[in-house]
């Protein structure tokens, strides 16, 4: 089963990071695609865009945002959306994603991915905003499940129920981050397999994996270090159920040389063919 939007399976990709620009342009490594953090290429007309243009000439690009703030009770930021769309068109991004979260209120951006209360009121709000954004972008938006560290006492549904209802009612895609499922499951005490069982896989256009930091009392989604086996296992499950989907490794702290990050991403091959290392 491929995704219902007809978006391509780009294989295994990596998050594009500044420290890797030189290696990528000099060595043209065999990577399926690159994902960019959209906002890193906004409010700039200079060097970052020059490198992005060169990378986009050689590789498929997908845009991953952190400031759409789809769950905020602030109005949508149309200046942001216009810049997002212009960037999408500039680099020919295959799709655009952002998080099931809000990042600020009253005009202040915390630059964090803050949790949403999973209520009917919030669902109706987010559904209408996703529809508005998709109408503007003239393309499906992929919504990612975030790592969360608290839950609201007033939530009336589980995150996976909210995500399923949102994506079906707004007719949008899912960027399923299996590391975030694992992190939130640990922090809130739910079963990650139960989460994965509830996902409408025909909407999954992309999968994320990453490393995390287990403090014993909680797990923080630091995107540091190698991906742990329980997270790879979830990737294998999700990939199989989705009938294949683009896979991306995020590595954002203590970023290693490109070949190390690339080798880590390619470990996914062992888990999606059903052969554990």
């Amino acid at each position: 089963m491929a995704n219902r939007f007809g978006l391509p399976n780009l294989g295994i990709g990596l998050g594009l990071r500044t420290v890797h620009y030189g290696h990528i342009l000099e060595n043209a490594p065999d990577v399926g695609w690159f994902e960019i953090i959209s906002e890193n290429y906004m409010q700039t007309a200079g060097k970052p865009l020059w490198f992005l243009d060169r990378v986009a000439e050689r590789y498929p690009i997908v845009m991953h945002g952190v400031s759409l703030s789809i769950g905020s009770s602030d109005p949508l930021n149309w200046d942001y959306l216009r810049e997002l769309k212009a960037l999408r068109d500039r680099v020919g991004a295959r799709w655009v994603s952002d998080h099931l979260c809000w990042t600020g209120i009253a005009g202040r951006n915390t630059h964090d991915l803050l949790p949403i209360p999973y209520t009917e009121e919030a669902l109706a709000h987010v559904v209408s905003r996703v529809r508005e954004v998709q109408d503007f972008l003239e393309a499906p938006l992929a919504i990612e499940n975030p790592s969360t560290y608290v839950e609201f006492s007033g939530s009336t549904m589980k995150e996976w129920e909210f995500l399923r209802a949102l994506t079906e009612e707004a007719d949008c895609g899912i960027l399923l981050d299996v590391n975030n499922v694992y992190v939130s499951a640990y922090n809130h005490g739910f079963d990650p397999d139960e989460y994965l069982a509830a996902i409408p896989y025909d909407r999954v256009v992309q999968l994320h994996v990453a490393g995390h930091t287990n403090n014993g009392t909680n797990i923080v989604d630091t995107h540091v270090g190698p991906v742990l086996d329980p997270v790879w296992r979830l990737l294998g499950l999700a990939h199989e159920r989705a009938g294949g989907a683009s896979i991306l490794l995020e590595w954002d702290a203590d970023i290693p040389p490109f070949p190390v990050a690339h080798a880590e991403a390619k470990k996914a091959e062992r888990w999606i063919t059903g052969v554990a290392p």
Binding site: T222, E250, D252
Partner: peptide, 17 residues
């Protein structure tokens, strides 16, 4: 002089149960 924003969370101090 390029600040890269990521979707990650800064590492936190370890908290006692």
């Amino acid at each position: 002089f390029v600040h890269e924003r990521a979707s990650a969370t800064p590492g936190n101090p370890v908290l006692e149960a």
